[in-house]
């Protein structure tokens, strides 16, 4: 059965299940990062690989940007509930919103001009700018001057890594998503 043969109601159920499964996958990514924190290797707060972004980016570019936004917000809320604090929720929320906006900005260029590496590097930068906005609201403007360049440099590496990971596995992840549509 093809997607086009599904009724409207079936399509809604399909979309719900697909997003639920991808939310679970994104949660696993967050959990793995929580178990093996990058900060043990590199003592920089606010720096992590952003594995959940792999799921969000595939969902955004290969399925639906709107669904990616919903899954992203739910993922941030749930992982803050499980592993975080109210302060870390604010930080991830600002970071999440900014990197989501970056994904929209990158949309016209994706595929033609750059691959997931460019997208990932820019959205990591967006994420860190968002986190810094939260830091400025909560603490002090001075952190911008001292800590932002360090965060952005780290984002270059973490974004690059997840970008390469995305380039390597997006087709497979996409196949997993689309498989259900064809049977």
């Amino acid at each position: 059965m093809r997607m086009s043969t599904l009724s409207r109601a079936d399509r809604r159920v399909y979309r719900l299940c697909q997003n639920a499964a991808l939310l679970a996958l994104a949660m696993i990514c967050s959990f793995v990062e929580h178990l093996v924190p990058l900060s043990a290797l590199l003592p920089l707060p606010g720096v992590k690989l952003g594995l959940a972004n792999v799921v969000i980016a595939v969902l955004f570019y290969k399925v639906s940007p709107v669904d990616a936004g919903i899954v992203s917000v739910l993922r941030i809320g749930l992982s803050a509930l499980l592993f975080g604090t109210p302060v870390s929720l604010l930080f991830s929320l600002f970071g999440g919103v900014m990197s989501y906006l970056t994904l929209w900005i990158c949309r016209p260029f994706f595929g033609r001009f750059f691959s997931f590496v460019g997208v990932s590097v820019l959205s990591a930068t967006g994420h860190h700018l968002g986190q810094m906005t939260a830091a400025v609201i909560l603490f002090d403007t001075g952190v911008l001057l001292t800590y932002l360049p360090i965060l952005l440099l780290a984002g270059l590496f973490t974004g690059g890594t997840t970008g390469l990971l995305l380039n390597a596995c997006s087709t497979r992840l996409q196949k997993l998503i689309k498989r259900g549509e064809n049977n």
Binding site: S115, V117, G118, V119, V121, L122, L164, N167
Partner: peptide, 13 residues
């Protein structure tokens, strides 16, 4: 169908 690294990625970096 694999997504490949493009020149534009360097621009983003």
């Amino acid at each position: 169908k694999q997504v490949l690294f493009r020149r534009g990625d360097w621009v983003a970096i």
